[in-house]
Write a protein that binds this DNA or RNA. Structure first.
Length: 854
RNA sequence: GCCCCAGUGGCGAAAUGGUAGACGCGGCAGACUCAAAAUCUGUUGCCGGCAACGGCGUGCUGGUUCGAGUCCGGCCUGGGGCACCA
């Protein structure tokens, strides 16, 4: 029995593809283009199973589309700026640039062993000045277009390290390194006006018909368009007013309090003379800036003692609280609370003993008896206890009160978005410098074109906390471009979401020096036809890219409506978790099976098997793809990634699964290289006569070709693999002793090999060569199914009595309904189930089912 | 807390509103072998039955329908996101 030599074979074909430049893409007006892109990796050190899954899926699509005649662009690059590089600098004393570039080199090598059909000549790394210089120019153009502006906003501040913290660096309100209670600080920062495109980004979702519905829904909710009323309360004893926004103006007569954000100007003003309030605000600020922390915290309020006057009753006043759940970023940073019809307001009212007056009565409730207990009523109904609104439904009441406020000049009906402008300033080193200069005289001055790019200096130190750019002895000192006097560079860098907001365009002409990309290249390649990545990017990255594309269009860089015409979001790769006797996490590599078949630690100690969870360093449940590829080869790893689980769902990595993939590879190898008979030459004509068995196998070949093509189009890789296995099982039944069977074996083997090529490209090439072909499979077109052979002329129909299966019948395809009905009623089992009862109705679904209703 | 998604045999899963469990893993039985591994063959949702066959069965619960894993309502559990992780 010959053995398939994976290592030698995979390396040889990878070299051959490279030698032939099989995957180098060029614009070609004569062929339809297809741009396949997987989300580019952050160079964290080594590739992980998530990458293997992502790039396997993308490569299957790229190879499949190439075989279907498309001019495919399939590039790869590195999302190379970011926080981990700076953490590595602190922990391992390596420079972020060195760390990043070494990681890129390692990961590039690892990716190449996967045998991906990537055009490596287009590789980019976003930390290279040749890349990020272009986004400096884009930013300056956005400034000119009014899409970039500065405003004060909050950051997490670690008072011990004197450093700005990312949300993930705040753990339970404390800095991750120092353990100090985090404070919020206000800094002047750059923002991009994504809200200017809120409506367009919302409308554009409708055109994205090849995006998952759930991603469009999440984006829609994120943008959060809502209509409501913005109005002003008079504040008792003061001249100023308190402006609030509400989506439920109809419930205004059920109001029992007003609440403002801890960061509302009024709160700050009152706190100046109220130490208790100041302490409450400080407590709110210790929650950090993340919405999650704020929303999950216990709802608390502080009565300011101020009262606001009800807009429709000068005698009616409401207390004003500072509340920890009111966000300054949304609406006006102030609300009114109607406890009966909002759960959060109700919880708050119960806690502070505020009145709860129902003003909307559900249609089926008794108006006199309707009361609200612990659950707010948020459904439709009729207004009550609401003076001029009484008797109106919720919608009419909203309109009526809006109109009255507008005519009284107290407020106006408006549209509000949840979406906030995109803050892009980061007080960090490892990022693209923001190209502006601060002049004492001229304020903010953009760096002039001829002084671009602003290069990130590499001679920095990490011995002090804070941003090394700020500590650099000379870098920030420069001359004002306007007056030439000493001025300071901005030391903040860009959010790394900026790099990933346009890399797909850079890939179209990655080596253009004087521009971000060539117009004719982006006009040809964009939009990306199929984008593939994790669901975790459903909102931020994808929304920012959609915005950036529009901003680039506005500034004349390109003309594309949407960057990603098709999107596929794959699931995570999970693994069992293990703990030793002391409760410490154990890596799968440290686990063995003892002679009793139990899982034990390498030292023989007991192992507790935990839940299946996302592979993560912290839980040590990681399997290194490099080891897998080294042992089983890239094809086995790829096959396993595609086999069992549908790609959008989470996949559990198991030893048994990779073994199964490995076994199948060897099975295919043996089946074809040790075929039972000499096969007829490739391309010989079909014999005139085929045995029933051979003809049946032939039908299955064509059915499989048709099915696999459809499955790959629809990302049903697991089904495609199942079909391919089914066909190989059937072909294994043929002994090839008759001329007909031998011919069908040749047809079947060739079809099999061509169909598995996108999934297991190395094995497929090797077998294709073995079948006697001189030109590589990568240059072959996708096989075509004979439609006549791919459809059966006999179908199995189910016969039900009252919806219960009682028999199945073999009937000619598309048999007449009355004939099907006659045959069904003639069946003995059906007659038995009818028990002599009269037939009321017979439903015949062609080629599927016959349901007899009694 | 809010938004989104998922839940089917021992396990991964399949199933345009129409035969639930294709394909694979594991198990069991057998072939080959001195033996084992590898490989091959058969079998395998659960309960009852020698069998034919019957009953039950898609997280829980209620509904729509001739017919529901699939559609609708309410729950439970797990996962993703929440604007400075990427």
């Amino acid at each position: 029995m010959s053995r398939y030599n994976v290592k030698e074979t995979e390396a040889r074909w990878q070299a051959e593809w490279e030698r032939r430049s099989c995957f180098t893409a060029a614009e070609d007006a004569g062929r339809p283009k297809y741009y396949v892109l997987e989300m580019f990796p952050y160079p964290s050190g080594r590739i992980h199973m998530g990458h293997v899954r992502n790039y396997t899926i993308g490569d299957v699509i790229a190879r499949f589309k190439r075989a279907k005649g498309f001019n495919v662009l399939h590039p790869m690059g590195w999302d190379a700026f970011g926080l981990p590089a700076e953490n590595a600098a602190l922990e391992k004393k390596t420079h972020p640039a060195k760390w990043t570039r070494e990681n890129i080199a390692t990961m590039r090598g690892q990716l190449k062993t996967m045998g991906l059909s990537i055009d490596w000549s287009r590789e980019v790394a976003t930390c290279d000045v040749e890349y990020y210089r272009h986004e400096q120019k884009m930013f300056l153009d956005f400034m000119k277009a009014g899409l970039a502006y500065r405003k004060e906003s909050w950051v997490n501040w670690d008072p011990v390290d004197n450093t700005v913290l990312a949300n993930e660096q705040v753990i339970d309100g404390r800095g991750w390194r120092t353990g100090a209670l985090v404070e919020k600080r206000k800094l002047s920062q750059w923002f991009l006006k994504i809200t200017a495109y809120a409506d367009e980004l919302l409308k554009g979702l409708e055109s994205l018909d090849r995006w998952p519905e759930r991603v469009r829904l999440m984006q829609e909710n994120w943008i959060g368009k809502s209509t409501g009323v913005r109005f002003r309360f008079d504040v008792q004893g003061r001249d100023d007013k308190l402006e609030v926004f509400t989506t439920r103006p109809d419930t205004l007569f059920g109001a029992s309090f007003a609440a403002i954000s801890a960061n509302h100007p009024l709160a700050s003003e009152l706190a100046a003379n109220n130490p208790a309030l100041a302490e409450f605000i400080a407590e709110c600020n210790r929650l950090g800036t993340s919405e999650e922390a704020i929303e999950t915290a216990e709802k608390k309020g502080f009565d300011t003692g101020l009262r606001v006057v009800h807009p429709f009753d000068p005698a009616w006043t409401l207390p004003v609280y500072v509340a920890n759940f009111v966000l300054m970023e949304y609406g006006t940073g102030a609300i009114f609370g109607c406890p009966a019809h909002d759960q959060r307001d109700l919880d708050f009212a119960r806690k502070y003993d505020l009145p709860v007056t129902p003003v909307v009565i559900p249609a089926d409730a008794d108006p006199a008896a309707f009361a609200v207990g612990t659950e707010a009523y948020t459904g439709p109904g009729v207004l009550k206890n609401s003076r001029f609104l009484d008797g109106l439904d919720v919608e009419s009441a909203k309109q009526e009160i809006g109109k009255r406020m507008e005519s009284a000049g107290q407020g106006e009906r408006t549209t509000q978005y949840r979406l906030r402008d995109w803050g892009v300033s980061r007080q960090r080193y490892w990022g693209c410098p923001i190209p502006v200069i601060h002049c004492p005289e001229h304020g903010i001055v953009p760096v002039p074109d001829d002084q671009l790019p602003v290069v990130l200096p590499e001679d920095v130190t990490f011995d002090k906390p804070g941003n090394p750019l700020d500590h650099h002895p000379t870098w920030k000192h420069t001359a004002c471009p306007t007056c030439g006097k000493p001025a300071l560079r901005e030391t903040d860098t860009f959010d790394t979401f900026i790099e990933s907001s346009w890399y797909f365009a850079r890939f179209c002409s990655p080596h253009t020096a004087d521009a971000a990309f060539e117009r004719k290249a982006v006009d040809y390649w964009l939009p990306v036809d199929q984008y593939i990545g994790g669901i975790e990017h459903a909102v931020l990255h994808l929304l920012y890219s959609r915005f950036w594309t529009r901003a680039l269009t506005q500034c004349g860089y390109l003309d594309v409506a949407e960057p990603f015409a098709g999107l596929f979001t794959q699931g995570m790769v999970n693994h069992e978790t293990y703990k030793d006797a002391n409760g410490a996490w154990l890596s799968p590599a440290d686990i063995v099976r003892n002679d009793k078949g139990e899982l034990v630690a390498a030292d023989g100690g007991p192992v507790a098997v935990g839940r299946v969870e996302k592979m993560s360093k912290s839980k040590k449940n990681v399997v290194d793809p490099a080891n897998i590829i080294d042992t089983y080869g890239a094809d086995a790893a790829r096959l396993f990634m595609l086999s069992d689980s549908p790609p959008e769902r989470d996949l559990e990595w198991t030893e048994a699964g990779i073994d199964g993939a490995w076994r199948y590879i060897n099975r295919l190898w043996r089946m074809i290289t040790e075929a039972p008979v000499a096969l007829p030459a490739a391309g010989s004509p079909a014999p005139a006569e085929l045995s029933d068995k051979a003809q049946g196998a032939r039908r299955l070949i064509h059915k499989t070709v048709a099915g696999v093509g459809e499955d790959l189009d629809k990302f049903r890789f697991n089904k495609a693999v199942a079909r391919v296995r089914e066909l190989s099982n059937a072909l294994a039944e043929l002994d090839g002793k008759s001329a007909g069977e031998a011919w069908v074996l040749r047809e079947g083997f060739e079809a099999l090999v061509r169909m598995v090529a996108p999934m297991m490209p190395h094995l497929a090439e090797e077998l294709w060569a073995h079948l006697g072909h001189a030109t590589p499979l990568v240059e072959q077109p996708w096989p075509e199914a004979d439609a006549a052979l791919a459809t059966d002329d006999v179908v199995t129909m189910a016969v039900q009595v009252n919806g219960k299966l009682r028999a199945t019948l073999e009937l000619p395809r598309d048999v007449a309904k009355d004939e099907a009905e006659r045959r069904a009623l003639a069946d003995a089992n059906v007659q038995k189930a009818l028990e002599g009862k009269p037939v009321r109705k017979v439903i015949v679904v062609p080629n599927r089912v016959i349901n007899v209703v009694v």
